[in-house]
Structures are given as structure tokens and as C-alpha cells.
């Protein structure tokens, strides 16, 4: 015993793994670049599919990392790491170095920057927002347009930066569909008179209770699902958004007047993760996420001995999957450290 592990990234995956490793008796350093632990979870209001508060999950994770074996470093960015013999030397922005026997990368994801799809008008029209902006509104319980008026017609645009070859992302981010359904319901609950539309390519409801939520959204909350992607967004003379979209099921072009358009931004490999990967020559896949040793039984193992991955730095994952992935990473690390005596 007495071996040490450095976990880079204090989001869901990093916190869960750090907690589990500490319980196993290893001394763990958890490094987070932000001022708080919790990652993207802190920006979320309710989680799908059961709309439980994200704060509950956050509380569980905070409880996990309050352990004597864990040293928490926040507001520190890892600038790189080196492997010397069987040891890793991790350097942080502060100029410190930390030694470790194993390294767990839990660098997570960045939200797709919706400005890159300029045709949707994010950053140009005030009432075009992202799914993350909407969650912040939910958290503040204040859902309004830029001019303070309550929106009456809200659109959700799926697959922004996902399954889109033009921005170089051909993969599906897989959470946005169910998030849109969840958010559509939340909007209807907050503003019962609002009309809500979802513009989708395919509804990918492949998780436990997702399909049920989708059904509920249609039957109970009268959300309109329109199969077709928005091509461009403009504003009309009344300053209302006008979305051009083709209803591919009805086979006709539509022009929809909306008060608010929510872009379901996809997930991309985090920029800091890319820097770390390129600095240490870690393999990345065509989707730019870390490429694990094996997609079936080695999803936590990196191409450098002693480097492990957990969470959404390997592919888009939801909270449930991230926690499972972090636990399996712990198993791999324990195996590795036991064999390296």
C-alpha cells in the first residue's frame, strides 16, 4: 500500500473515482481547473429521465471526496505530465509537481460552441440560447426573453454540432435528445400556456425510461415534435425569430415564428484534454476523444502504461454511465497497482 494516484478533472467521473480509490486506501490527489468541484453537473437543474435535482447527485459526489486520503486541488490546471520509470510526474500551472504511481484522466467534455453554426444565430440574436443557458434559467427559476417577456413559443433544435459533418462531428452526442425532451417538459411546466416544438433528425431514446419520458412529453405536455433540421434563423420586423425548417414527414417547408430557440449543443472532447493528450502522445479517435485500448473490455485503459480514462473524455456519456465508468476505472487501477509491486 501507500501508492498514490493523481486524478485530473474534478467532475462527476473524477470525483467518483477519487472517492472509490481513497476508500481502497490509496492516497489520491484530485486536480480541478475550476474554482469548484462538480464539473458540468453544477450548471444543470434537473437530470433526465426522472428529473431529480442535480444538487442531490452533487451532494453524493461531494460526500465521496471528503476523505482523509484525498488531497483536493482546485483552481489548478495540469500543464503536462511525464513518465519516469514507473512513476508519473504531473506538473500544474502553479509550477508544482506531484508524483504518482498511476494517472486517471477524467478531463470530460466541452459543450459544442454554437457560434460555429452561425446560421442558427447564437450570439447574434438574443433569444437564441443553448441548452446549457436554459438550465441556468431553470436554476434561477426565471425563464424570460432578453426583453423580460415570458416566451410563448419555444423551439428546441436537436443535433447542434452533433451528427454534422460540416463541423467535423459525425458522431451522436446521445444525451441531447432526452435532454431536449426533459427541457421541453420543464418549459411547459414553468409556462403552461407556452407552445413547445422540437426539431429533430431522429429521436434517439435508447436509455432506461427515456421512451416513457418522450411519450409523456407528447401526451401529457403536448410538445410538438417536427422531424426536420432548421436550416437558418432570422428575425422578422416584430423582432421575433423565424426558423426555416423542412417538415420531412409532411414533406413541406415551414417557417416557424418563435420567441425563443434552444440549441441542443453537442459534446466535444475538451480543449484541455486535447492539449494533455497531444503533449503526452495519447491516442485519440476520429471523434477526437481519447481512444481507449479496447472498446469492449478496455474502455478505461490508455495507450501509455499507467494512464487510465474515466467518463466523457472517452465518448459522450450520461451521469449514470459516467459513474459506472469511473468505478470500472478504479478496478483497472487497483489491478494495475497490485501487479506493479
Amino acid at each position: 500500500m501507500g501508492k498514490s494516484v493523481v486524478v485530473i478533472g474534478g467532475g462527476t467521473a473524477g470525483m467518483e473515482a477519487a472517492g472509490r480509490l481513497a476508500h481502497e486506501g490509496y492516497s489520491v490527489t484530485l486536480i480541478e481547473k475550476g474554482e469548484e468541484f462538480g464539473g458540468h453537473l453544477r450548471d444543470w437543474y434537473h437530470l433526465f429521465p426522472d428529473r431529480r435535482s442535480s444538487d442531490e447527485v452533487l451532494a453524493y459526489l461531494n460526500n465521496q471526496v471528503s476523505h482523509q486520503n484525498i488531497r483536493l486541488l482546485k483552481g489548478q490546471r495540469v500543464t503536462g505530465f511525464q513518465r519516469k520509470g514507473n512513476e508519473f510526474i504531473v506538473s500544474t500551472g502553479g509550477g508544482d509537481t506531484i508524483n504518482a504511481d498511476a494517472l486517471l484522466l477524467a478531463t470530460g467534455f466541452d459543450l459544442f460552441k454554437s457560434q460555429r453554426k452561425e446560421e442558427y444565430g447564437y450570439g447574434i440574436y438574443d433569444n437564441v440560447i443553448t441548452s446549457a443557458d436554459l438550465e441556468m434559467m431553470f436554476r434561477k427559476k426565471d425563464l424570460r426573453l432578453a426583453n423580460g417577456i415570458i416566451p410563448e413559443r419555444v423551439g428546441f433544435l436537436h443535433c447542434v454540432g452533433s451528427r454534422d459533418e460540416k463541423v467535423g462531428n459525425i458522431y451522436c452526442s446521445k444525451l441531447c435528445c432526452v435532454t431536449a425532451v426533459k427541457q421541453a417538459i420543464e418549459v411547459r411546466k414553468m409556462i403552461p400556456s407556452a407552445k413547445v416544438f422540437c426539431f429533430y433528425m431522429d429521436m434517439r431514446m435508447g436509455g432506461a425510461l427515456y421512451e416513457e419520458l418522450y411519450k409523456e412529453a407528447q401526451e401529457k405536455y403536448s410538445v410538438s415534435f417536427i422531424r426536420g433540421k432548421v436550416s437558418e434563423v432570422a428575425v422578422n420586423i416584430n423582432d421575433r425569430l423565424v426558423a426555416k425548417v423542412e417538415d420531412t414527414l409532411a414533406g413541406r417547408p415551414l417557417k416557424m415564428e418563435l420567441d425563443m430557440l434552444v440549441l441542443m449543443a453537442g459534446m466535444e472532447m475538451s480543449e484541455d484534454g486535447i492539449k494533455l493528450a497531444d503533449g503526452a502522445k495519447l491516442k485519440r479517435g476520429e471523434n477526437r476523444f481519447f481512444q481507449p485500448a479496447d472498446h469492449h473490455f478496455g474502455t478505461n485503459i490508455g495507450n501509455m502504461k499507467g494512464v487510465f480514462y474515466a467518463g466523457a473524455c472517452t465518448a459522450p456519456l450520461n451521469i449514470t454511465e459516467t459513474i459506472s465508468h469511473a468505478r470500472s476505472a478504479v478496478t483497472e487501477i487497483v489491478n494495475y497497482l497490485n501487479s506493479e509491486k
Partner: peptide
């Protein structure tokens, strides 16, 4: 230009 609304605006 319709796909780059910043220019149109």
C-alpha cells in the same frame, strides 16, 4: 449571407 446572419444584420 443568410447562413451568416451577422453579416446580414
Amino acid at each position: 449571407t443568410h447562413l451568416t446572419p451577422s453579416i446580414k444584420k
